[in-house]
Amino acid sequence: MANVETVEGRGIPLLLDDIDTDRIIPARYLRCVTFDGLGEHAFEDDRNQNPNHPFDDPRYKGASILVAGRNFGCGSSREHAPQSLLRWGIHAVVAESFAEIFFGNCTSLGIPCVRVERAVLETLAESIKQNPKQTVVVNVRDLQVRFGEKKIPCEMSDNARQALVTGEFDSLSRLLEGVDDIQEKAAAIPYMSHFSDV
């Protein structure tokens, strides 16, 4: 896995709160056995009901850094939500806060989700609206978001940051290394041995 230290690109503002994963990818698109083709359906129902949705705004075409509000990605655990954003072209999310399962799913796909204080987040969204062509840089290593002349601090849990910058966000190989420990642990858990030792 490649290290994810910085993500650089143009921004797309969607500063709404409590955006759930049903809105990111409607459930009918979960009738699939691969994640292919999910990108085009990102926010589909919202886009159909709002002709001014940022995902259909030509000014934000090709943007890769999503700027969202509070509790982004709440609801269903569907990994289809970050898979769909990734296939749309989103490679980092900057928001006031994230729902936990969504955050974990994004991290394991190498999509950094960083938190920024509301007032500063609004400045960032406004700046992107004023100048959609500007470059936004999410620096995971230094926990900083850069746009124009501005540098703003952002937050992320140490564990997730560490996993991203060391390229270990797909934890499978690390988990596999522990196989002997896993079997030893299993043997010590009462329900794994019919409660014979309790």
Partner: peptide, 12 residues
């Protein structure tokens, strides 16, 4: 099971 280098717990 153990603590991973990231600081996370490997949980059975």
């Amino acid at each position: 099971v153990r603590t991973l280098p990231s600081g996370e717990t490997q949980l059975f």
